[in-house]
Amino acid sequence: MAPINQAAWLMAPDKGPLEVKPAPYTSPDAGQMVLKNGAIAVNPIDWAKQFCGEKKWKWMTFPWILGEDVAGEVVEIGEGITRFKVGDRVISHAVGFYVFGNRPEEGTFQLYTIVRENMTAPIPDSLSYEKACVIPLACSAACCALYQKTYLELPYPTCPPAPLNGQYILITGGATSVGCNAIQLARASGYKVVTTCSERNFSLVKKLGALYAFDYASPSLQENIIAVLKEVEVIGAFAIGPGSVELSIDVMSQLGDSCKKIIAKASFPWPKEDPVDDDEYWAYMKWVDGWNDKISALEEKHGITTRFVEGAELGRNELGKVIYGGFLPGALAGGGYVAAPEPQVIGQGLQHVQEALDTHKRGVSARKVVVRLE
């Protein structure tokens, strides 16, 4: 008899709260597994989809199951999988949200989720599900920025970390979930990391591997970063967080030929106050178009390239296997890669997922919002 499944469903594009209802249990196809979810984390795209309804990510239909980050136990294995067995503890970046996934069975806001082998890594017994589930999407996004062709194209990370090669990388938003992963990955690839965050998070980002940390609120932020980078070789920048793209362009425009003028960007501006109706939403989207035009003009003026990061693209190329199959298992088991930032656990059970989304939307600092499911 199949396990009994439940999910926190997004029932309709009306911005209403998620509803906990029964969900089908679906067996995996080849190259896939089913997890019994131990803990899940929420991400900005989850509450953004709930807010935007049918205006954005139109390939999804309703009702739908959101969620990308999960840690749990393998309960069923599809054909062709040899790397895992039933009972293994794993993390996975589930891909139901994305075009190449595009089905609710691969969303994590439920008790049982279908995941893909090339987006899944084992975790040691010493790592709790609550801590582990902060890793997947943020790690995937950081990897897409750092390693994919036409982005920063760093050499792949190694465990133990590669020797420092003398080159630098600027990673803004170092205490965010994506930033915490990007710092560790860049250091594992042999780079010296310069990052930004609040002063209270300096110890966190330096523990993760950043060589320099600067207060993002400092009036001399730009000058401080340039002072470090002006005489060294810079491989590029990864812009995370509000104002990060503009900051990265301003810095790079004042560095010489020793700077590779490319910026991977993981953020775009979101208004301080949510649009309250369709007119305000479309006015905001028009404003975003203007922002993109402004960034394009700055690129042309300074000879800089920026590229937006799609966080799950490694699931469609060799990078997924490199990271989830090659790097993360040994790095997590050996302690060379840590789950960061710390989880902010909202509660236990699917009934807490909406609360978790609301908490994340209001904003958290150096935490990732998590719901325990067992």
Rank of each mutant, 00 (worst) to 15 (best):
G315D: 02
G315F: 00
G315S: 06
G315A: 13
R316I: 10
R316H: 02
R316V: 06
N317T: 11
E318G: 15
E318P: 09
E318M: 01
E318L: 02
L319H: 07
L319T: 08
L319A: 07
L319E: 05
L319N: 05
L319Y: 09
G320S: 08
G320I: 13
K321S: 11
V322D: 00
V322H: 08
V322C: 00
V322I: 14
V322W: 01
I323K: 03
I323Y: 01
I323R: 05
I323Q: 05
Y324N: 10
Y324W: 11
G325C: 15
G325S: 10
G325I: 11
G325R: 10
G326L: 04
G326Q: 11
G326P: 13
G326S: 14
F327Y: 14
F327T: 09
L328Q: 07
L328D: 03
L328Y: 04
P329I: 09
G330P: 02
G330R: 08
G330V: 06
G330N: 14
A331Y: 13
A331M: 14
A331F: 13
L332W: 02
L332E: 09
L332P: 03
L332V: 11
A333S: 12
A333D: 15
A333N: 15
G334E: 15
G335T: 05
G335W: 09
G335H: 05
G335D: 06
G336A: 14
G336M: 13
G336P: 12
G336C: 15
G336F: 12
Y337Q: 05
V338S: 13
V338L: 11
V338Y: 00
V338N: 06
V338E: 13
A339L: 07
A340R: 00
A340E: 10
A340L: 01
P341I: 06
P341L: 02
P341H: 01
P341Q: 05
E342I: 01
E342M: 02
P343W: 11
P343K: 07
P343E: 04
P343S: 06
P343T: 04
V345E: 06
V345N: 05
V345P: 03
V345I: 13
V345T: 09
I346P: 04
I346T: 05
I346D: 00
G347L: 03
G347N: 05
G347T: 04
G347M: 02
Q348T: 13
Q348W: 01
